[in-house]
């Protein structure tokens, strides 16, 4: 095993510190996949009433990966989210309570209606302040499934990126080897740090919070910053794609049929006929 090294500035002098790997994890607040989604009165957002809000599932893999790297190699994990006030609670419960060292919430009214690029600009600006070695996030957020923000952040920071990563392992002090599932096979890619990786399902098994983790989370730093603090303005995140309206899919009528018949044998005969002729399943 080797140590990560990192140049740090202290009192005007540069030091090389061993065992420091700084990881930023980007986490989005989304409705629980179990939630019953209703569209709000404005016709283009989700009604938040009675909806449990959580960290997006793929981001949880990213958090777990970051924590495992920190446990193995030392360093610091910072979670960053761009979202509403409620995202602060999520950062505490789903990041700080699990072992993330500190969190940053980018909160600005201009972000409420932005698109993926606007969100990526805000997150990239927040990442820039941290100068991480590694940026991890989910391959997509389970609410809108754009799968765009991770690559956009990489592009804005001019960093290499690999998406849909199922396994990652450092190969040297300044590079990772990652695996990426592709149709019918597995890609192995070596990527130099700093880099952006987006996590796929199966990368790991995200941990539960511990009682102690939850208790210490309340004392960990959670900064809320607005766009101005990141050197951005509303214009920088003005959406180029505008969400016009949301609709729920049409309710499908129950299409099951109950086969009637004199005897079990007759019913089976009818079932076989239907499977052949109607469903064309056989």
């Amino acid at each position: 095993m080797f140590c990560f090294c990192r140049r740090v500035w202290r009192a005007g002098r540069a030091y090389v510190e061993e065992g420091l790997l700084k990881i930023v994890v980007l986490v989005k607040l989304v409705p629980s996949s179990e939630a019953r989604i209703r569209i709000a009165a404005d016709g283009r957002s989700i009604d938040p009433a009675d909806v449990e809000l959580l960290a997006s599932a793929y981001d949880e893999y990213a958090v777990e990966a970051a924590l495992q790297l920190k446990e193995k190699f030392g360093g610091e994990v910072v979670a960053i989210s761009a979202g509403p006030d409620k995202a602060a609670e999520m950062l505490r419960k789903s990041c700080l309570a699990l072992g993330v060292d500190r969190a940053v919430l980018v909160r600005d009214p201009a972000l409420d209606r932005t698109d993926t690029l606007g969100t990526a600009r805000a997150l990239a600006a927040a990442c820039r302040r941290e100068t991480p070695d590694l940026i991890l996030c989910g391959k997509l957020a389970i609410d809108q499934e754009n799968a765009a923000v991770g690559p956009q952040v990489a592009a804005l920071l001019d960093l290499p990126h690999v998406s849909v990563v199922s396994n990652l392992e450092p190969s040297s002090e300044s590079a990772f080897v990652v695996h990426r599932e592709i149709e019918g096979g597995m890609e192995e890619i070596e990527v130099s740090l700093p880099a952006v990786l987006t996590a796929n399902k199966g990368m790991n098994e995200p941990r539960y919070a511990s009682l102690k983790g939850i208790m210490t989370a309340k004392k960990k730093p959670l900064d809320t910053v607005d766009l101005a603090a990141l050197g951005l303005d509303a214009q920088a995140v003005a959406p180029k794609a505008i969400l016009v309206s949301l609709k729920t899919p049409p309710v499908r009528a129950d299409q099951g049929i109950i086969i009637q018949g004199e005897s079990a044998a007759a019913k089976v005969a009818e079932l076989v006929r239907l499977l052949f002729e109607e469903a064309k399943a056989l």
């Binding site: 629980s32 919070a209 102690k212």
Partner: peptide, 28 residues
């Protein structure tokens, strides 16, 4: 949070592995 602190103390008192206590936070 204050309820959890009481539980943590009780687990320690009972010589449990208090730091390893896992919590289910979400409905899932």
């Amino acid at each position: 949070l204050s309820a959890m602190e009481r539980w943590y103390a009780a687990i320690e008192e009972a010589e449990g592995l208090a730091d390893d206590t896992v919590v289910a936070q979400s409905e899932a």
